[in-house]
Amino acid sequence: MFVQLTDWFPVILSIKVALLAVTAVLITGLPLARLLARLEFPGKDMVEALLTLPMVLPPSVIGYGLLMLIGKNGLLGQTLSELGLSIIFTWWAAVLASTVVAFPLMYQSAKGAFQSVNINFEQAARTLGASEVKIFFTVTLPLAWPGILAGLVLSFARALGEFGATLMVAGNIPGQTQTIPLAIYFAVESGKEGTARTLVAIITVFSFLVIYWVNRWAKQKKYNLR
């Protein structure tokens, strides 16, 4: 039994949510990773513990925390309600949940990548008069790129498979907030084994192709740099 045309919605939504989440963690995680990879200050360990906390917390705890933030009575939710806006139980809530759970993977990978860059290369560029921005984009980023790419792939996979937190803040609304993990779970629960198997096959093949393409691209990139 193949999925019907309407059953493709979870696939499209999951990819859209994952791409937006990866974009968000790249924009936020990369600068933080670069800053904290070199900077030392009192309380740094506590800051890093907070940044990576979603990696070890149960998804239900993350979901509850997001409910307290963006729910109707939440800190941000009340402000949005006064403006006539609402994130809760929309697909934007799914993006937020996926971003939160994927962020630590991007941050940890990027931080490790930046720390692996030999600081002497950056110092040499400074002595030649290069600006910090130019040093970052021409020296630091190319050298750290393999680790950053690994973080992007891990973040995308985590965002694509997010279930618990998404269910709590976005719900399972067919045609609106139902992502692939939610569609698979509720298809099995309702006895639609054919739909569940097809969705599992789709997400497995898609994830395999993404990882395969990234690995091939990274290998080609490494070869070209030799």
Rank of each mutant, 00 (worst) to 15 (best):
L209Y: 13
T166D: 00
I135D: 03
L143I: 04
R38Q: 05
L20A: 14
Q115I: 05
L83R: 11
S207K: 05
L167N: 05
A24C: 12
G74A: 03
W217D: 10
M68Y: 10
L75S: 10
A130V: 05
F89Q: 07
S14T: 14
V61N: 09
I184E: 00
P146A: 05
G129L: 06
F208C: 00
L51I: 15
T28I: 15
V25M: 08
N73Y: 10
G161H: 03
P142D: 06
Y212H: 15
A24W: 11
L26E: 09
A159T: 06
P58S: 01
E48V: 01
K221F: 09
L20V: 14
Y185A: 12
Q176P: 07
A97R: 04
I15G: 03
A110V: 09
G194N: 15
I62T: 13
M168W: 09
G164Q: 11
S109I: 06
P31M: 15
R34G: 01
A157M: 10
L35T: 15
V133N: 13
L26F: 15
L19W: 11
T195M: 04
V11Y: 01
Q123I: 09
L143M: 11
L51N: 09
G65K: 11
I203G: 00
S155H: 02
W91R: 06
N215M: 07
R226P: 02
F137R: 05
K221P: 03
V205A: 06
V214N: 08
T90M: 11
L69R: 14
A49P: 02
Y64D: 00
L66P: 00
K16S: 12
A165I: 07
V47Y: 09
Q178H: 09
Y185D: 03
R216T: 15
V139A: 03
G77R: 07
R38I: 05
A150R: 07
A196N: 04
I203E: 00
K134R: 15
V11L: 15
F156V: 00
Q178N: 10
V205Q: 00
S86D: 08
R34C: 03
M46D: 08
L19C: 14
A144N: 04
N120T: 13
M55Y: 14
T179A: 03
L51K: 13
Q108V: 13
K192D: 15
W217F: 13
Q220W: 15
I70C: 08
G74P: 06
L57F: 14
L75Y: 14
F136H: 03
K221Y: 12
N224Y: 06
L51Y: 14
I87K: 01
L209H: 10
V17L: 05
A196L: 01
L85W: 15
L13A: 02
A37K: 04
L152Y: 02
F89E: 02
A157D: 04
W91D: 02
E132S: 13
F163H: 12
